[in-house]
């Protein structure tokens, strides 16, 4: 419905805006002027496509969550059986906790790192343009390709273990991505590395709007670096924090390709997330109904956290 309302309200706004235009004044006919350009039904093709691609496809996928469809052939409606199976299965619950750990871990560390880098590269530093590009690079590169490079780095015969051996810590060498304790942290490192640049760009846009005069005034009043950041900069970039954390959480909750490339969910499910489970159930193990149910659960979780996040970080309580 929002999609239908928006063009209509814009069309309704047009004549009023026209009246305010200098020179348009009295000659403008109230209803049939050249600025009255648009009807709500012009949006129909777009609405039809959005409806068909987003809502119908998602709806059909959602319907299969209540069936025992294997991906081919016939199926039976099984009610909530797939959802019961999810909440009884320790693997799925493990995947849920991994998903939350990776999402919140990558948002927290990625945003802190992004903010620190943005503050550092905001002004003064001469090489800041080159450094910004370098820090933003991981966002532009293919997550799958970079994940394979990381996989090589963390490989048992890879550069990390070679480095440890070179500095005399060879006994610490381990198959990082197949170690039950370390695998999830290794994945987290890769996720933080890839999300930092994105957070940095958002914080930089926020920092550009912070007036230098206010910071200078605070400095003259005797505020130290931390006080200036805490009481001047941070409140001013609050909208940027809201956007960076919300997008980060949504991205973190549905992360898929780096994990598939790094560990495939292993060792023995230690890095399995809801997204990798959705893929495995629906496509690798021929349990399309179970996969669809898991996808619905994931969508609900993303929705809940996105809304919560927006409410917690909004700058104006009346928004």
């Amino acid at each position: 419905m929002t999609a239908t309302m928006q063009p209509k309200s814009e069309a309704a706004e047009a004549p009023r805006r026209g009246k305010r235009t200098p020179g348009a004044g009295e000659n403008t006919r109230p209803r049939r002027g050249p600025m009255q350009f648009g009807h709500w039904w012009w949006a129909l093709p777009g609405i039809a496509l959005v409806f068909a691609i987003h809502y119908v496809a998602t709806g059909i996928g959602g319907f299969f969550a209540f069936t025992n469809w294997t991906g081919i052939g016939s199926f039976k409606i099984t009610g909530l059986a797939n959802f019961e199976a999810i909440f009884k299965d320790p693997t799925k619950l493990g995947a849920l906790s991994n998903t939350l750990f990776l999402a919140f871990g990558s948002v927290l560390l990625g945003n802190i790192a992004g903010l620190v880098i943005a503050l550092g590269l905001n002004r003064v530093l001469k090489t800041r343009y080159i450094l910004r590009t370098l820090f933003f690079m991981p966002v532009v590169l293919s997550p799958l390709a970079t994940a394979y490079i990381w996989k090589y780095i963390f490989d048992f015969d890879g550069p990390l273990n070679a480095f440890l051996a070179a500095i005399g810590a060879g006994d610490q060498a381990k198959p990082w991505l197949a170690d039950p304790q370390w695998a999830i942290w290794t994945v987290l490192v890769v996720l933080v590395w890839s999300s930092t640049g994105f957070a940095m760009v958002i914080f930089m846009a926020g920092l550009a709007g912070v007036p230098v005069e206010v910071e200078e005034a605070a400095a003259i009043d005797g505020a130290n670096l931390w006080q200036r950041f805490r009481n001047v900069t941070l409140p001013a970039i609050r909208p940027a924090v809201a956007i960076a954390t919300t997008l980060g959480i949504v991205q973190g909750l549905r992360v898929f390709d780096p994990i598939m490339a790094l560990t495939g969910g292993g060792p023995a499910g230690a890095t399995e997330t809801l997204a990798t489970q959705v893929y495995k159930q629906a496509f690798a193990l021929g349990n399309f109904g179970g996969g669809a149910a898991l996808a619905l659960v994931l969508a609900a979780i993303i929705l809940i956290f996105a809304v919560l996040q927006q409410r917690l970080t909004r700058s104006n309580p009346e928004d």
Binding site: P180, G266, P267, G269, K280
Partner: peptide, 17 residues
């Protein structure tokens, strides 16, 4: 179904780790 073999294969990795 393929889930039986998947349980064996991922399980053996779990035994090794």
């Amino acid at each position: 179904n393929s889930a039986v073999y998947d349980a064996l294969a991922t399980g053996v990795q779990g035994i090794i780790t």
